[in-house]
Design a protein around this nucleic acid. Structure first.
Length: 522
DNA sequence: TTGATCAGCGCGT
DNA sequence: CTACGTGCTGATCAA
């Protein structure tokens, strides 16, 4: 960034800066040692709070919506503010600035209309700076470890490709669903499963069903899919994103997810594998630098706790209050047995119902997840809602209210319009109903997490700790902590997370220390 | 031939 | 026929 001293001074000292999409700009200033700490309004984020479902919050599109006019120049949307460039770039920057200043009072009025002033001022606005610091810090990566993981996976995909070609009797692109369809359904003549738009499906669930018809091919094929996914997305993908400082600086988007969650890209650090042991090894490549440890702290069952609170369901609330194993307690109520007599099967069914709850899952979906009949799934669901009647009522009310007003709202006032509820199309309308059930729940969890994140940063900054937040994953925060600060910072962070909001159920936060993200995850 | 976009797939919370 | 995301690969189409 090329900045005149006067401009630098203005950004450092001016008590009120208004920006459209401030974070990239903030980051480039940070790289120059300038801290833009007096952001008072980010018009892109304000526009997002007013309507979180838009596909773009570019200056042009937001101006088009709120002002009915767009800047004519081609201002860069990456936050570059290059006064050393040509006249044209200076011109378009100036024009953009004028538009932002016109936009500001309009979006502020919009926030006021929907009573989002404090959601903006207390949560979203301070979060911009927190995220800028997080992105700027990045997370340390052990490049050698990542390379060796990738090499091992590459070797296996090559072997599997050879094997699959020889079994099929010809060479083909294993990554191509089209070519795969030909082999499976035309050459081999397998009985096809479900269809996609373009032909018969070759996804994992379908292949599992076909497995017994041609095990010597489908077995290795499933294995190939698994390994190739890890190799390409996480092996190659992550290696490309390692910056010269040996760290990965992902972007955390604040105006993408319609529920209020953050999203991550370049790279997406929200979907690093954890379920399979083989995928999990990628987490060993995310490390603490010398002299530091990683603290990984995550909320336990935050969405289910949000449901308990929102539905004000006595059964759920008392189970959480007593600190019971929630799936065990749920199973006991649903199947009408004592806490000590819940079988593993009952517990896992209850767990699946609880997970599906926030998504508006119905009997069919549950039957698929549990590999049971629709009738049995329907009995379980019915039993669940009889055991937790307030939950059922809450879900029904959420839909009715959203249909009446046209939007859902979280406890903190975050809105999401759901026009699908008025659709003539039955499927679309049903999807809208599921969104209406989910939005207040997922959104509340997001609100709470954002509050925790802002407060964690505040306490670390104000007390001059060297510890810094380096990553967040929806309900989990990863903090890089110098060994000398571990004893003090650990408890502070846990307390902050537990105290982020005052619901009718307590929050439980799991924490672990480690040299890598994997070891810290237990 | 190249770039943009869609479709299919699978990873996470 | 469960919500919300990102991104890889191949297929398809326009320039």
């Amino acid at each position: 960034v090329l900045l005149h001293d006067e401009v630098k001074q203005a950004f450092t000292e001016h008590r009120s800066v208004v920006c459209h999409d401030a974070k990239p700009f903030m980051r480039s200033l940070m790289a120059d040692g300038i801290d833009l700490s007096f952001l008072t309004l980010d018009t892109a984020i304000a526009a997002y709070l007013i309507n979180p479902s838009k596909s773009s919050y570019s200056l042009a599109s937001v101006c088009g919506e709120f002002l009915g006019a767009e800047p004519t120049g081609s201002m860069e949307s990456d936050g570059t503010f290059d006064f050393g460039g040509t006249d044209i770039s200076a011109q378009s920057c100036a024009e953009a600035a004028v538009f932002v200043s016109r936009l500001a009072p309009v979006v502020l009025a919009g926030l006021a209309d929907i009573h989002n002033e404090s959601l903006y001022a207390d949560i979203e606005n301070p979060l911009v700076h927190v995220l800028a610091k997080m992105e700027s810090a990045g997370i340390a990566v052990d490049t050698a470890a990542l390379l060796s993981i990738k090499d091992r996976l590459t070797a296996e995909t090559q072997e599997l490709t050879q094997l699959l070609h020889s079994i099929a009797g010809k060479t083909f692109n294993v990554n191509s669903p089209t070519q795969l369809r030909e082999i499976l359904y035309t050459d081999r003549g397998l009985a096809p499963g479900k269809k996609t738009k373009t032909g018969f499906s070759t996804d994992a669930a379908t292949l599992e069903k076909l497995h017994d018809q041609w095990p010597e091919f489908i077995g290795p094929l499933l294995r190939y899919r698994e390994v190739e996914k890890l190799r390409s997305t996480y092996g190659e993908g992550l290696l490309h994103e390692i910056a010269p400082d040996g760290r990965i600086h992902a972007t955390f988007n604040q105006t993408v997810a319609r529920t209020g969650r953050l999203s991550s890209d370049q790279p997406n650090l929200h979907n690093i594998p954890v379920r399979s042991d083989e995928g999990k090894v990628f987490r060993t490549a995310f490390v603490a630098p010398k002299g530091c440890s990683l603290l990984v702290a995550d909320y336990n069952q935050i969405e289910l706790r949000c449901i308990a609170h929102l539905a004000n369901d006595p059964g759920l609330i008392s189970a959480f209050a007593a600190g019971e194993d929630i799936h065990n307690a749920t199973a006991a109520r649903v199947f009408g047995v004592a806490l000590g007599e819940v079988t593993a099967d009952q517990r896992s069914k209850a767990k699946m119902v609880s997970y599906g709850l926030a998504y508006g899952m119905e009997a069919y979906g549950l039957s698929q997840r549990l590999s049971i009949g629709v009738d049995e799934a329907s009995v379980i669901l019915k039993a669940y809602f009889e055991a937790f009647p307030n939950v059922k009522k809450y879900m029904d009310d959420a839909i009715v209210e959203a249909r009446r007003t046209g939007y859902t709202e979280t406890l903190f006032g975050r809105r999401r319009q759901i026009p699908e509820l008025l659709s003539d199309n039955f499927r679309v309308r049903q999807a809208g109903e599921r969104q209406a059930m989910n939005a207040a729940i997922q959104g509340l969890a997001a609100d709470i997490f954002k509050i925790a994140l802002v407060r964690i940063d505040k306490l670390l900054t104000e007390k001059d700790f060297l510890s810094r937040v380096v990553l967040q994953v929806h309900d989990e925060v990863i903090v890089e902590v110098p060994d000398s600060e571990k004893e003090v910072v650990g408890p502070l962070i846990l307390d902050t997370m537990r105290g982020a909001a005052d619901l009718s159920v307590p929050f439980e936060v799991n924490a672990a220390w480690g040299d890598t993200w994997a070891s810290a995850k237990g």
